[in-house]
Design a protein around this nucleic acid. Structure first.
Length: 639
RNA sequence: GCCAGCGUAGCUCAGUUCGGUAGAGCGACUGAUUUGUAAUCAGUUGGUCGGGGGUUCGAAUCCCUUCGCUGGCUCCA
């Protein structure tokens, strides 16, 4: 090997000795395997680099393909730059902030005096198309930090300068395409014509660095794919998500409403929505009782003094509603824990009594900021399937594992995928460092014991303890926090909870706060989008509707209706003087699982003709046969 | 809360550029039709143009203000 040569290995095939400064692209060509078409970038000793990057050291070189997750990220990142280039050409006065790839696409933040309007997007896209067709090479350049600061200062790019000033690296990489220069780690595509299938989706405000004390920037969101079909599929999925929007379906299926006159974030359940919620609550009570929970009920208002004692007043006040009664301050509960602690304290507890598991479908109020309210997903009054487990420190692991199993079993019934996060101590919090460390350890241990993988969110915990959050994925692929398990060593301390141990001494129990579905409101919202309103039979507010063919069949329909009703089936009767086709259509739009057709033929035979909402005609059935079918499907988890 | 957009009949929307007495489809209601598996026909009804204030001879339209809704504000060049 010559001194000016470098030794490059590949994941597959023989290593090569190549002249120094050979580009990654040339090296991959020399490797002589397949086409370079689907290769976006490369990885040298694990570091992602541009295909045009000159190799300066020995190492292992692997290609990054279009269908690698990182390949798509690179495309989107480059498309974000392309968009920024287009924006700078159309609006030279804008300043650049940042423009990363994100899960669904990419964005770029700009500072602009007059905000972008939706009408600007097609113009920007058009400019992007022209720049893309121009096939402008994307070139990486290395600058010293000072040079880069000088360059961006001269261009008035104050955000770039601010970022550079906080960096410690002596050199930074800049990427140049035509007149456009951006500071960026890369890697990028080699030319602007790599971005071909993209769409700018919306504009929004975003604080500089996500901090509400910083100036508001204008963010443009977009997405990009390597293939047209992938882009079309993505746009179709967005459309489908709009069709599944729980706010729309909630109105169409007459489940709930939210009114100005009543107040923002306050939900009114109509009969069918109330039925759905009742079904969920009945399910929950049963599931809790069979796992050794006791049902309790606390008051809506508690003395402000008690909220001071618990630390809520100090740490949670902005989200609480307060009032005064007979000269005494009261707070409307934003959480259910206080009453549960009072129940525990009402007696001397022995270690033999533990764990105590108090369950409450507890309605709470929180003063959420107006801008975050969203349908059923984010409201100001909601009901939690809340429980507090008070146990000995020795029992803690098992209790947390028990809750994790509970969550997994319930999510399986609803066919939800979920992700797990652990949140650690926030700035505003109470309790000793030692307790926090113990609590986090307990949560992690339980997760590991249950074989669940998790990510860590630093500083996202509750003020009284760390938590495990379970995030469901909804139709828009947004994650919704539903279940959460929170470890608490602090409130037992503050409320002086005790139990008598085997040694006859008094000890401090620990407490676990936990919800399974979370808030009933949010969970119902997620369910609506999950099932697109077509609830499985066990959850359907109306399980069957009886449809008469003519007025002649009305009284027989009435009889069948009464028979079904008497067995507890949730059934409706449609004997309007309308055509069968219309009734079927309306039942179909209401997503009722079964339509029971009754005409002269059925009346003569004493039968019924059920049909499913998927359009399957089940033929001639007896009423008992149909009752059995519905009963069978009324079991939670059955479809 | 902040930025932007939006708010017209129960729903979906037109009308706002350029001020001149408010429209459509669906729904609802009434009647006819006696109907067989996703829309029968006809007629009728329907709005303090989110609220308040201002400009004007005149405001859905222009201005101010207020309420609400929607998207976003975490994913670090």
């Amino acid at each position: 090997m010559q001194p000016e040569e470098i030794h490059i290995k590949f994941p597959e095939g023989n290593p090569l000795d190549l002249p120094k400064a050979t580009t990654a692209r040339e090296a991959l060509i020399k490797r002589g395997q397949g086409s370079l078409k689907k290769i976006v970038a490369a990885r040298l000793n694990g570091e992602s680099i541009d295909l045009t990057r000159a190799l300066s050291q020995d190492g292992t070189l692997e290609p990054i393909f279009e269908n690698d997750p990182e390949g798509l990220e690179i495309l989107r990142h480059s498309t974000a730059h392309l968009m920024a280039q287009a924006v700078k050409e159309l609006f030279p006065e804008v300043k650049l902030a940042i423009g990363p790839a994100i899960e669904q696409g990419f964005y770029y933040d700009f500072a602009k005096k007059d905000p972008f309007t939706p009408e600007d997007l097609p113009r920007i896209e058009e400019k992007m198309r022209a720049l893309s067709q121009g096939n402008i090479p994307i070139v990486r350049e290395e600058f010293s930090r000072e040079e880069a600061i000088r360059l961006f200062s001269s261009q008035g790019e104050s955000f770039k300068v601010e970022m550079l000033e906080e960096l410690t690296e002596p050199t930074v990489s800049l990427y140049r395409q035509g007149n456009f220069v951006d500071m960026c780690r890369g890697p990028h595509l080699t030319s602007t014509n790599g971005s071909r299938f993209y769409k700018l989706t919306h504009v929004a405000g975003a604080y500089w660095r996500g901090d509400e004390h910083n100036p508001m920037l204008q963010r443009i969101y977009g997405t990009a794919f390597f293939e047209k079909k992938e882009l079309d599929d993505h746009l179709f999925r967005l459309e489908e998500a709009r069709r599944r929007d729980h706010r729309r379906i909630g109105r169409e299926l007459d489940l709930f409403s939210i009114h100005d006159e009543v107040g923002p974030g306050l939900v009114i359940y109509h009969p069918k929505g109330a039925m759905l919620r009742t079904l969920l609550e009945d399910f929950e009570k049963k599931e809790h009782l069979r796992r050794g929970y006791e049902i309790v009920i606390g008051p809506q208002l508690l003395r402000a003094d008690l909220w001071k004692k618990s630390g809520h007043y100090e740490n949670y006040r902005e989200l609480m509603y307060f009032t005064e009664i007979d000269g005494q301050g009261y707070g409307i509960k934003p959480m259910n824990c206080l009453a549960h602690m009072m129940i525990y304290k009402s007696k001397v507890r022995s270690y033999r009594d533990l764990p105590k598991r108090y369950f409450e479908l507890g309605t709470v109020h929180r003063h959420e900021k107006s801008g975050v309210l969203h349908g059923l997903m984010r409201v100001r009054q909601f009901t939690q399937d809340d429980a507090h487990i008070i146990c000995t420190p020795d029992q803690l692991q098992d209790e947390i594992r028990g809750v994790l199993n509970f969550v997994a079993e319930v999510m399986k019934i609803f066919q939800f995928d979920f992700e797990v996060e652990i949140s650690t101590r926030p700035e505003k919090s109470i309790g000793s460092d030692q307790d926090w460390a113990r609590a986090i350890e307990a949560l992690i241990f339980a997760l590991k014991a249950n074989g669940l993988s998790y990510s860590i969110c630093e500083g996202e915990g509750a003020f009284y303890g760390p938590k495990i959050d379970i995030k469901l994925k909804d139709a828009l692929d947004r994650r919704w926090q539903c279940a959460t398990i929170q470890c608490d060593f602090t409130l037992p301390e503050r409320f002086d909870l005790q139990y008598v141990g085997a040694d006859g001494e008094r000890h401090r129990p620990v407490m676990v706060h936990r919800v399974i579905l979370g808030a009933m409101e949010r969970f119902i919202g997620v369910l609506i989008e999950h099932y697109a309103g077509a609830f499985p039979t066990w959850l359907a507010p109306v399980q069957a509707v009886i449809l008469s063919v003519t007025d002649r069949n009305a009284s027989y329909c009435q009889k069948v209706f009464q028979d079904l009703l008497a067995t507890g089936i949730r059934v409706e009767l449609d004997i309007r003087n309308e055509k069968l086709g219309l009734k079927v259509r309306e039942a179909q739009l209401q997503k009722i699982p079964y339509m029971v057709v009754i005409g002269d033929k059925e009346e003569e035979q004493g039968s019924i003709s059920p049909r499913t909402r998927s359009g399957e005609n089940l033929g001639s059935w007896s009423v008992p046969q149909f009752i059995d079918r519905i009963r069978e499907e009324s079991v939670p988890g059955k479809q």
